[in-house]
């Protein structure tokens, strides 16, 4: 029972990270019908940007962990929002109308460039970097299960973010513009919506979400690695596909579903824990073979 709770907690944390990444994929696909495959590496870059921000404030003599945490989160999300918009502007928008494979390859290669930049130019970037524990380390023991405050805080913050994005899309003018572009680009343009601005804003938003997931990932595992984004990117994309690309709730659902499957695999086959990534990728292939356009199918009314 206790062990199950532990698994459940872990699954929910993973699910939230996947969902945040999947949200980006689904947003990009919604407004531009493209897959931005550098997204996973944007996540890594976000974590490293946060790390760099941390190093700066520590050098500046800031000791308290709250300002440190704020710096990390802001450095990660803001810099990645900018980077996301730049990627959208330079990699994706110019390829609008090109074969889907070209966009895929361009963003994959863009991601490679990003990954290589971290590996080559971040001090010690080729080695896993320790991520500081910035959240309170309070924990309550409930039998053999330890409920950790930092996990709860991350969970709350992540959930709030998902909720916030959903509110942004449903309740604000910007959200309305995004949804309009997702529905029908041509009509949206004729209604006076600045297509480029909407697209770039969406890229900024999605990338900031990925950066947040990157920081979460760092805080959760106390470590970041230049190559870890690739895996998270593929899983996040799969989650978005499983939920139906372009569907917001589908992405969140897909993220948790994917984490659930992974956790289930770990529970059922604890001896095979080394194979957890093999299992994850195998699931991606099977799911797509079973439901080629995702579980929810082609979203028509619900696109973003």
């Amino acid at each position: 029972m206790d062990l199950l709770a532990q698994y459940l907690m872990n699954g929910v944390m993973l699910g939230l990270m996947y969902a945040l990444v999947a949200l980006g994929f689904t947003l990009f696909f919604g407004v531009l019908n493209v897959i931005q495959f550098a997204h996973g590496d944007v996540l890594t870059a976000g974590a490293f940007a946060g790390l760099a921000g941390y190093a700066l404030v520590v050098r500046a003599g800031v000791q308290a962990s709250l300002p440190q945490l704020l710096t990390v989160v802001l450095a990660a999300t803001l810099s990645m929002a900018v980077l996301g918009a730049v990627l959208g502007r330079t990699l994706v928008l110019p390829l609008k109308g090109a074969p889907a494979l070209n966009v895929l390859l361009a963003t994959l290669m863009g991601g490679t460039a990003l990954r290589e930049c971290i590996r080559l130019f971040y001090p010690g970037g080729s080695q896993p970097q320790r991520f500081p524990a910035l959240l309170p380390s309070t924990a309550w023991a409930l039998g053999r299960f330890t409920l950790r405050l930092d996990n709860l805080l991350m969970l709350a913050a992540g959930m709030a973010l998902v909720l916030g994005v959903s509110l942004l899309l449903q309740r604000t003018r910007t959200g309305l513009a995004i949804r309009a572009v997702a529905q029908d680009e041509e009509t949206a343009r004729t209604m006076g919506i600045d297509f480029r601005r909407v697209v770039l804003f969406t890229f900024a938003l999605g990338s900031a979400l990925a950066a947040f997931a990157g920081v979460m990932n760092g805080l959760y595992y106390n470590e970041v690695n230049f190559g870890s984004g690739l895996l998270l990117g593929v899983i996040g994309f799969s989650a978005a596909v499983v939920g139906g690309l372009g569907s917001l709730s589908g992405a969140v659902l897909g993220g948790f579903l994917f984490a659930g499957l992974q956790t289930l695999g770990a529970v059922v086959m604890p001896f095979a824990s080394a194979y957890k990534d093999v299992f994850a990728f195998g699931m991606v292939i099977l799911l797509l073979a079973w439901k080629p356009t995702g579980l929810i199918g082609e979203p028509l009314g619900e696109r973003v």
Binding site: A100, V234, S238, V278, F281, L286, P292, T293
Partner: peptide
Amino acid sequence: LPLLRTRGHYAALITIAFGLLFRTFFEV
């Protein structure tokens, strides 16, 4: 089977997932 049932991005993702799966498998 998965490749025949899918197209474009989805088909590409299947091969990407397979490539990553394969390498991880041989590593562990």
